[in-house]
Design a binder for these strands. Structure first.
Length: 466
RNA sequence: GUCCCCAUCGUCUAGAGGCCUAGGACACCUCCCUUUCACGGAGGCGACCGGGGUUCGAAUCCCCGUGGGGACGCCA
């Protein structure tokens, strides 16, 4: 049997990390078993769905590299099919027209709440012989079994029992004729041959209803796996207040998709003590039975750590494009400085994000005009003057401008001046970078080259002089 | 309110009755390395929600409680 999974976002907002993780799990499961992964856009809510949101979802999926084998399907393009199924259910007696007005329903709910009962439709239209006079356009409801129980066989939770008596006759088609979520999912999953439904456990309660529709249609149930929700860093429900919840925001913030994927895969899933997973390793190791049952809070620090790990270990070429993207976001033209590869090479161990790396690399492209106050106060005092003078002279005479040569030069000058390395390297660092923090001074100067370095020392000297 | 789900360090988790003096990771603290910042290395702090059972033995199984979450829409 070919494994078929799907990711069915509704285009009403951005692709957030919770959705991304569900997509990842579904994608991994399909890949792991050589199956197919389907992308389906659930846009039956005409009011709230937007083409922009569809675009954002597609972009997010593409950035993460979660390529789908089929789709994207749009439910709005399958309305004929849903109508056909609804008609069939009506004909077979598995569904019926309900003429209750919204007001009636509201009263019913209020009464039940007041009596501390579970609010649900009482099925009063089930036995209607004929439509009432002057009735509003009806909705179509599922004829839910009134007895017995539905057992959801869940790969994560085991068997979960729901009494049919707890369920009511849910609406499968609105009064305007459009189908609702529970009907569409079931029909699509049947038609698309979905074998494994991996989704958030907020859907666990919907599952018995969907299984009853499935039964009415005479279709077998897929394997369900209800994964726990993702919580914000504060342990509360994920919301916009927690910062970057949209996947594309992580891109803007300088995260690598492999880092986000690695972070996400370990949220609710584990493989022994392993923390670092390449895409290939995830695919090889992923399994439903290692998914956890409890909700997980996001830990921004750990994501940062993983991102830094991938920045440190990725091939430099892999970082070129996203790093350039970050520079441009800061209005820096990547072509106006030293080779990007060189910069990345010496910055990668001191940046947790590519954005941070870009910020720290600005001086490679733009000569500092002002100096960081504290760094200047500490390292660009009058005593730095002879040091910079000596350094300048020696650098100008340097036959070959390489990191090794600069390294030897700095050490030599320190010895000659009878000073510790810090007393020599720090003023130089502040002079060329504008601050007290930079990659090793030898590598920094090697990248800057004499044409950028010498004038900067002059500028610092002039600044000290005033 | 009713139904459903969940419960190991601050966080992510390992753990499928004895291997647990409860392991790893992030964060935090200390030390080492060091021209800054980092990287790296070595240590440290730190948890089985509570109560009953079952068992020779329970973090692991059962029950109750407590806490958290979800569902109860002509949203998905």
């Amino acid at each position: 049997m070919t494994i078929v999974t799907r990711f069915p976002p509704s285009p009403t907002g951005m692709l957030h990390i919770g959705g991304a993780r569900t997509a990842l799990f579904s994608w991994l499961y399909a890949r792991r078993h050589g199956g197919r992964f389907i992308l389906r856009i659930e846009d039956t809510d005409l009011e709230r769905s937007t083409p922009e949101a569809v675009q954002v979802i597609l972009e997010g999926m593409a950035w993460l590299g979660l390529e789908w084998d089929e789709g994207p399907y749009f439910q709005t393009q399958r309305f004929d099919r849903y109508r056909e199924v609804v008609a069939q259910m009506l004909a077979s007696g598995h569904a019926y027209h309900c003429y209750c007005s919204r007001e009636t329903l509201e009263e019913m709910r209020a009464g039940q709440m007041a009596r501390k009962e579970k609010p649900r439709y009482d099925g009063r239209c089930r036995q209607l012989a004929a439509p009432p006079a002057a009735a509003p356009a009806p909705v179509v409801r599922l004829c839910n079994p009134t007895e017995g129980a539905v057992v959801v066989r869940d790969a994560i939770h085991g068997g979960v029992v729901f009494e049919n008596a707890e369920l009511d006759d849910l609406i499968i088609a609105r009064s305007d004729g459009t189908p609702t979520y529970n009907l569409c999912v079931v029909v699509d999953d049947i038609d698309m041959g979905v074998t494994h439904v991996i989704r958030g456990d907020d859907h666990l309660n919907n599952t018995p209803r969907q299984m009853n529709i499935l039964a009415a249609l005479g279709a077998p149930a897929p394997v369900y796996a209800h994964v726990p929700m993702i919580l914000g860093p504060d342990g509360r429900k994920l919301s916009k207040r927690h910062g970057a919840v949209s996947v594309l925001e992580y891109r803007q913030e300088g995260y690598l998709p492999e880092a986000l994927l690695n972070y996400l895969v370990r949220l609710g899933w584990s493989h022994g003590d392993q923390e670092i997973f390449s895409i290939e390793q995830m695919i090889a190791a992923f399994d439903l039975d290692a998914l956890s049952k409890s909700a997980a809070a996001v830990n921004p620090d750990k994501l940062l750590w993983l991102n830094q790990h991938y920045i440190k270990t990725a091939p430099v070429e892999r970082l070129l494009a996203p790093f350039a993207e970050q520079l441009r976001a800061l209005d820096i033209d990547p072509a106006t400085g030293p080779a990007l590869a060189g910069i990345i090479e010496c910055q990668r161990e001191r940046a947790k994000t590519l954005k941070e790396m870009a910020l720290a690399s600005r001086f490679f492209f733009e000569a500092p005009t002002v100096f960081e106050e504290k760094a200047a106060a500490k390292n660009l005092g009058a005593e730095a003057r002879p040091v910079l003078l000596a350094l300048r002279a020696a650098l100008q005479a340097l036959p070959e401008w390489t990191a090794t040569a600069v390294h030897g030069l700095v050490e030599g000058q320190a010895a000659a001046l009878g000073l510790g390395l810090g007393k020599v390297a720090q003023p130089l660092r502040v002079a060329v970078s504008g601050g007290g923090v930079s990659p090793p001074i030898d590598a920094t100067l090697a990248l800057l080259g004499p044409t950028r370095t010498l004038p900067r020392i002059d500028h610092a000297l002039a600044w000290i002089g005033t």
